[in-house]
Design a protein around this nucleic acid. Structure first.
Lengths: 246, 246
DNA sequence: TACGCAACGCGTAGGCCATACGCAAACTGG
DNA sequence: CCAGTTTGCGTATGGCCTACGCGTTGCGTA
């Protein structure tokens, strides 16, 4: 256990991994890290990431802005805590589930739900995960492929592929759905209808004409996501069969 | 041509689509929109999106900060212009290329290169594309599938799948590569080695032990990207064969 | 040739923001 | 009851975006 590494890490990491020193002496805290993070998550959920400022967060907590800095080293620290706490635990399955497709699919669908509930997560991810929460999700995804003949590098590649897709699809759906100002539902479709000149963008104009951007009534919004996910998992299946033959 | 729509659009869109009114009367401009956008792109390329402020941009252009607002309605406007200009034109192929896989693969690889050259694009994308530059890329991707039996909705789904993957892979590679401070190359690997407790994260610990995060010497950095892209296109191939049989 | 006015560049100022620093208050173990 | 420790917070600084309005410039026209 090289502590020299821990010393040069951000404060937040040492707290997240349970390496913070216990204290019990002084004044009774009116604030706690959990309360701060929970309030920050709620604020970001309700009003968006741009509305999350230390001042507004303190206002919501009924304290002075500078009080927050006793529990959080800075705004980056706070966002790291939010990222670790908001997703919750990943779905449960064993180390080598027999049905890789079902497991990985469930993982993807649940993560998709997390991103829809907390759209700010997608805008916030700047670096590879280093907190227990995100690593637990990553581990679960890797475990879903534990029963397949894929080698470790291929498993990681597949997981990243699914992760990128889930993130992108959630971001797209979030921005297509959440525009309660003005036309709302079909605003982007209407805009594209006017902008997609058939001479300049023939394929795009064709897609618009075919109603790709119009909301289809008989299907839920997850439907497009599931369709793309099926394409993706078909490709993974091909890779698995190929690896099994070798 | 419903001009009533154009009136409620951001100023930047009307400029981008050539709908701005021509002016020729007043003082000779020392600044131009092209110079401003080019300088902004260069600044973001060199020092990152966080370093792009109106003040620093003006400093680089040798003008006062407020002068920029004569050509750009605000910072959001400027970023929209940057997004439209930086990628350049998409690769060229006809309306229905015979080799969909080669075309789409080339599209993906070139877009990957764009994201590596301009990493800020990934952090900046907040809404579906509405500018000619991004719509040209989207149209090119849809055209690459023009010779396949996929219906329009499936084509769009496939294109989004590839787009999300390219974006995610570029973001990941950017953050893995660009850490010239301290340990650099293997910093994340070393950190994971310590954090990935085999009891708590068995699959992740296995991946670390197998050297998934260590930079492999005999391959270029694009190699992981191409491998994932192949998985993905295998899945698209399955969908195309299925559609051809129906 | 001379003028008017449209478009330009920019100075000022105000409102947000994150946060470094230091002090007063409150609680607890001895 | 006291000393030590930890918390809460007031003040202040420097950065950011940008609304507003003024002086300046040079083309089009008379």
């Amino acid at each position: 256990m090289p502590d020299d590494i821990a010393d040069e890490l951000p404060h937040a990491l040492n707290v997240l991994w349970g390496r913070a020193k216990p204290k019990g002496r002084g004044r009774t805290p009116a604030l706690s890290l959990e309360r701060i993070v929970a309030a920050a998550v709620a604020l970001a959920d309700e009003e968006g990431l741009a509305a999350l400022s230390m001042a507004r967060l303190a206002e919501r907590l009924g304290c002075a802005p500078m009080s927050l800095y006793r529990h959080v080293a800075g705004k980056d620290d706070l966002q790291l805590f939010m990222l670790a706490a908001a997703p919750g635990p990943p779905p449960e399955f064993g180390t080598a589930p027999a049905d890789w497709r079902g497991s990985l699919s469930r993982w993807a669908v649940e993560l998709f739900g997390v991103y829809l509930r907390h759209p700010w997560i997608v805008q916030l991810v700047n670096s590879p995960p280093v907190d227990p929460g995100q690593l637990a999700w990553l581990d679960a995804a890797l475990r879903s492929l534990g029963g397949t003949p894929l080698d470790p590098r291929a498993r990681f590649s597949v997981v990243m592929l699914v992760l990128h897709y889930v993130r992108g699809a959630a971001q797209l759906l979030t921005y297509m759905t959440a525009e309660p100002e003005e036309g709302a539902d079909g605003a982007y479709a209407a805009l594209l209808t006017e902008l997609a000149d058939p001479g300049r963008f023939p394929a795009l104009a064709g897609a618009v004409e075919a109603g790709v951007f119009a909301p289809h009534p008989e299907a839920g919004p997850d439907d497009d996501f599931r369709a793309g996910l099926d394409h993706l998992l078909d490709g993974v299946g091909v890779a698995i069969e190929r690896a099994a033959r070798a």
